[in-house]
Simulated assay, not measured.
Amino acid sequence: MDKKVLTCTAVDDEPMALKLLESYIIKTPFLKLQNTFPNAIDALENFNEEPVDLLFLDIQMPDLSGMELSRIIKNRAKVIFTTAFDQYALEGFRVDAIDYLLKPFDYAEFLGAAQKAHNRILSEYVSDTTSPEKEFMYVKSGFKQLKIALDQVLYFEGLKDYVKIWVKNNSSPILTLMTLKSLEKDLSNDKFMRVNRSFIVGLQHIEEVERNLILINNTQITISEQHKAKFQDYIANNSL
């Protein structure tokens, strides 16, 4: 998901105000207008089907106000309020609005609020997608929970409901009750790769590659046709 461009919806019961918002959004490079609505009820119904990153909400609207809509949506989208009543500003921040625009506002004011929203959403997105990489894992083997440094794992070998974990400088593998499929979800794609039905290899421990064979610690592992293209891309991206 690319957060360089934010999807947004504008909601205002005044046609001229809504038209102005629409024009401002369209001319802003990092905003993509999904919809405009003259009332909050239709906006809510659409949002539940097609969520957006950012909502520009008028506060004073019949039936359902912008403030009430923001409370319903809660943290599923960011909100910038547009209002003719500055007494609503403090309440707007209490529902964690990014900003409020006091009508009439010009494009410079709009852009400042939109940029604030963009910075907030982008920083949250980067934070969510850059969590620290695992350095070790605990696995149950017999009656013990063993701590294994992932950078020392040569490869994982699947045997039905069991996995053999071959660790550098260990003469015998660690046997644990799990499947390769469940294990694969917890491993970094930058460090490990599934190369056939039975093996996930530690990429940094590959010593040689010859046609469809990988050599790790004097063990030859076959690259299956299903995984060949992905592995070849990895080799190409890491070749001089």
Rank of each mutant, 00 (worst) to 15 (best):
K78E: 15
I98S: 00
V163E: 02
F81I: 01
I214C: 15
Y100G: 01
R197P: 15
G202M: 06
T222S: 07
F30L: 07
E207T: 14
N238V: 13
P51S: 15
K185H: 08
E133P: 06
N189Q: 14
S127Y: 14
H227F: 13
F136I: 08
T82E: 07
L183V: 09
L111C: 12
S171T: 11
V79W: 03
A17Y: 01
V153M: 14
G66S: 03
A97K: 01
V95R: 02
S23V: 00
S65E: 11
L20I: 11
S198R: 09
D86T: 06
K160D: 04
A77E: 02
Q115Y: 08
Y138R: 10
L101V: 11
M67Y: 10
Y107C: 15
I200K: 01
D106T: 12
L183K: 03
L183F: 11
K27I: 10
K230Y: 05
K3C: 06
L187I: 09
K32F: 12
Y107G: 13
A40M: 06
K116F: 09
N196Q: 08
K116T: 13
M16A: 06
D186Y: 14
N217M: 10
K4Y: 05
Q232E: 04
D63G: 03
S141N: 14
K140G: 06
L180C: 14
P104Q: 07
N39T: 03
K181N: 09
V126Q: 04
D42E: 07
L18V: 01
L64S: 09
K191W: 03
L203K: 14
R211W: 15
K164T: 10
R211E: 05
V209N: 06
I214H: 09
D106M: 04
L102N: 07
F192N: 05
A149T: 08
M193E: 05
T83C: 15
Q232F: 07
L101K: 01
I223E: 03
K147F: 07
D233W: 07
K103Q: 05
L21Y: 00
K103C: 09
K164G: 06
L64V: 14
I72S: 13
R211Q: 14
S171P: 06
D53K: 03
N217S: 15
R94I: 12
Q145E: 03
E135N: 10
V79G: 02
K185C: 04
R194G: 08
F30I: 02
L159C: 11
N46K: 01
M178C: 06
C8Q: 01
A229E: 10
D42T: 00
I214D: 04
N169W: 14
Q232K: 09
E133K: 12
V5R: 04
E124T: 10
H205P: 15
I216C: 04
P173C: 13
T130Q: 15
Y162C: 06
A229N: 08
N75S: 13
I25W: 00
D53R: 02
L18E: 00
R120F: 09
T179W: 12
S171K: 03
L69S: 12
L101W: 05
S65Y: 12
F85Q: 10
P62C: 05
V5K: 14
A149G: 12
D99F: 05
K185T: 15
A229Q: 09
Y234A: 13
Y100T: 01
M1A: 08
K164N: 11
Y138D: 11
D12Y: 02
F56V: 00
A43Q: 04
K181W: 15
F81D: 00
